[in-house]
Nucleic acid binder design. Structure first.
Lengths: 232, 232
DNA sequence: CGCTGTGTTGAATGCCGTCAACGTCGGTGG
DNA sequence: CCACCGACGTTGACGGCATTCAACACAGCG
């Protein structure tokens, strides 16, 4: 059964393409479902495909030779991922793991160069994405160089609720399961320190904890902590 | 006086272009000299131009709101820099400072889109560069998350001698003036810690220090330190 | 010849990682 | 149903690495 154009017509990535072009691209796509915790592709693996995430959230993880993990980023709905070919790689530089049940579209890597020449808007959107990620990553380097752990964790949580926040009666909640360990791997610290910080924030009424869940009830005060302007 | 094609014909960036195309691009370029310590462009400034470095070394620096500095990278001869337009920015995300006397070519930003459509090889080379920088930056995040200061400094120095090393009787020397403070700003530590580490390494005969100078006499042992496999 | 930028080194402080123990939640299977 | 077990989370104690504070040495330059 052919894929319906409505799947992608709402995405900014394809917004500048004609319906016929969208159909064409869809005709070459394969859709895939990935249950929670599934490995969509693995670091170092031959980059057979590139993807667009239609639904869910994906964790992109880099693993060091001695087994330590660092979370490079989370992918949201509508975003490209696994675009190794676009940056001149033949293997994936990290692993992609479904944080929740996910639906994605996949194209064989070899189609990338065709797409790039046929659909300039796709190319420019892709490189805008790569550029944005470069800037985000550099910002992260700056934070890791200049800030203390508490500020980094606060910044990271603020970023998460900004890009994947969902309103609840108690505040804004991160829309996918996330452990203290995950947050530690995003900030370069340990789950112990994250736990301590969040316990303290919970006592102050800034966040509400929960198993694999983070809800921010007072974003403003969290921002003050992130900016290191908390009175004390 | 028109610029000579030989200026760029040897650069990988332009290797796939015809002589006529190279002439065309050069005709639109402006060449510029920048003495040591000159600010070539400043963070947040409107991105009026993009550049290719013909000779010298450039330090790319991000400054935080409260005045702390982080060195994002060094630019070598033949590399693009200031390519804000290519990643969808209108202002520069960092400042570029001449580490030594430099010669560069500059084009007005508004020409970028023309170039991008007229010279596909230039585009793909540019994005390969952006992709490479993204990967380098992510690698840096991984290092900052998982390694101790000593390993990070060792890795950084090894990277510097790899990309800008010059052989001397005493070992391999970094080809531009670099202070302890600079190394601290690349590794997220303080000049004090860098100085202590390098003094220790000098005692062990691994490096030779000097004012604004670093020479590595035993790269192999430095690599062992970087990999944290030093016997002790 | 003083001044500024750079580099070195000692001592003290403290942040946060490490080690350890325990608590809790949720799924699973007897 | 409930006992069990593994994953997740919390908390205390301790210690070490690196920053901070301080003082001094040295080079280059106007």
């Amino acid at each position: 059964m052919p894929l319906d154009r409505s799947l992608i017509s709402g995405l900014a990535l394809f917004a500048e393409m004609t319906p016929a072009e969208q159909e064409d691209i869809l005709a070459k796509a394969r859709s895939s479902r990935h249950p929670k915790d599934a490995v969509i592709f693995a670091q170092e693996e031959e980059a057979h495909s590139f993807f667009v995430l239609l639904a869910g959230h994906i964790r992109v993880v880099k693993t060091t030779p001695d087994g330590e993990q660092v979370i490079a980023r989370y992918i949201n709905e509508g975003e490209l991922f696994g675009i190794a070919p676009a940056i001149g790689r033949t293997t994936y530089p990290a692993s992609a793991i479904a944080a929740v049940d996910c639906v994605a579209l996949a194209w064989p890597t070899r189609l990338w160069s065709d797409f790039a020449s046929s659909y300039p808007s796709l190319t420019s959107n892709t490189y805008a994405t790569v550029g944005r990620r470069l800037q985000e990553t550099q910002q992260r380097v700056v934070e890791m160089s200049t800030e203390q752990v508490e500020q980094r964790v606060a910044h990271t949580i603020l970023r998460l609720i900004k890009q994947a926040g969902r309103k609840t009666p108690e505040g804004i909640e991160i829309d996918f399961p996330i452990t203290r360990q995950d947050i530690a791997e995003m900030t370069g610290t340990t789950l112990h320190t994250v736990s301590r910080l969040m316990s303290a924030w919970e006592d102050e009424g800034i966040v509400v904890g929960g198993r694999q869940k983070v809800t921010v009830s007072d974003p403003h005060r969290l921002m003050l902590i992130a900016e290191h302007r908390r009175k004390r």
